[in-house]
Design a protein around this nucleic acid. Structure first.
Lengths: 232, 232
DNA sequence: GTCTATAGTCGGATAGAC
DNA sequence: GTCTATCCGACTATAGAC
């Protein structure tokens, strides 16, 4: 019932019963929202999946809507934890031939990670689905995700692309170009069902992801070559 | 709008009262399903938007689920009516330098139309949204759309791409490449909300669509150059 | 063919016991 | 903090009047 921290020494890692229920609810909700949509998911299902009771949703999040917002926060944290270090570590290289080559190498690495996470990672499915739904019907949850993920990642990619091509990082053309590159990756998740049928694949695992990465990488290098060649 | 034809001779295109209600329901449903999702839309709303009564849905389509399937059929008809002639008229050119150039010209034209329709056309919004939802959670409606739209269009594009590059039309690489190209276009609809915010646009109209088309066209030409250059 | 009334189900929220 | 019982509203589907 009333769980109290024993006063003996170090506190547990704040995984109180309350916190456990909270995260269990978020994970269950994220999973179900991604799978069946916000409207298609009942709070009863969420509570059942989280092994919690219905009332706890209202208690912890104020209601279903609050739970959605909490999911957005969880997504931002997750992505920042996964992609944050990789992005930050990849300092934008200086100018010159060597810098450009280094920038392209970074892009290659990022593309591979993006395909791996967005397209092939089964665990990411729920996150991607959730975000896609928010994109087509924005709520307050999208604001958090845009500010915490979309904007910084896109800005970062623009900077690296600029370093790889000599273009202006925040030029309209650069921003559009980066969107087009992201689109190549993302479509393999969104159109996954069509891709599977057309390719005769039963799923997108490591093998298939490698094929996709190969094609996209080749495309991006070709585009970079054209952009660079244009200015000289 | 709708031709009022007496049922003398011509097909069932006659707009009897029943047929009128039917199509009004489909259009309303497509709009609302695309906007708020299948689960998020009530039959009451659909009936109200179509100026029909609730019972008529059961009468004409057997229920909400049947209405979804009818929407899929409507989408297939619409797309085939719009894109069908353009696709069919564009016969795959022969081989040789001239044929390849002609194929690229066709691709340019198709890209422009695709961006115009998918990204900028406000009327297409509901169709695109509906299809996206089906893609992420396939029902019987997707089967109809895949067979009637996705498969033929993608196959056609592969053939044209093959004519433009000398590659094999049904090679795994070609199919993936075409998906990547489509992805560049589609993302500007899916990620529209993110694009708008990042670009500082308030909507995607003719001006913005032209910018997008410009970038994507340049990308595709660059990719084609790389693929062609590789084999020689 | 169209409309109304109603049956039957399910969802979100909440009050109150523990 | 957690759980149960319950209210109220909204939904789909259907039967039957017109």
């Amino acid at each position: 019932m009333n769980e109290r921290q024993t006063s003996s020494g170090s506190r547990e890692v704040t995984s109180s019963q309350a916190e456990q229920t909270r995260t269990a609810l978020i994970r269950a909700a994220l999973n179900l929202f991604g799978q069946k949509g916000f409207d298609g998911t009942s709070t009863r299902d969420i509570a059942a999946a989280a092994n919690a009771n219905i009332g706890s949703i209202a208690y912890h999040f104020g209601g279903k809507e609050g739970l959605r917002l909490a999911c957005a926060g969880f997504i931002v944290e997750t992505i920042q934890r996964i992609a944050g270090p990789a992005m930050a570590a990849a300092a934008v290289p200086g100018e010159g031939e060597r810098g450009e080559a280094a920038a392209m190498a970074q892009i290659d690495a990022i593309l591979q990670r993006m395909v791996g996470f967005i397209v092939a990672e089964p665990q990411a499915g729920e996150i991607v689905q959730f975000v896609l739904r928010e994109l087509s019907h924005p709520t307050a949850a999208l604001d958090a995700i845009y500010a915490g993920v979309f904007e910084p990642v896109h800005r970062r990619l623009c900077a690296i692309w600029a370093a790889a091509t000599g273009e202006e990082a925040e030029a309209e053309e650069t921003r559009l170009r980066v969107f087009a590159i992201i689109g190549q990756v993302v479509y393999f998740r969104i159109g996954r069902e069509a891709v599977l049928r057309r390719m005769g694949w039963s799923s997108i695992g490591l093998t298939e992801a490698a094929r996709i990465t190969g094609v996209i990488t080749e495309n991006v290098h070709a585009i970079r070559g054209a952009v660079k060649g244009r200015s000289s």
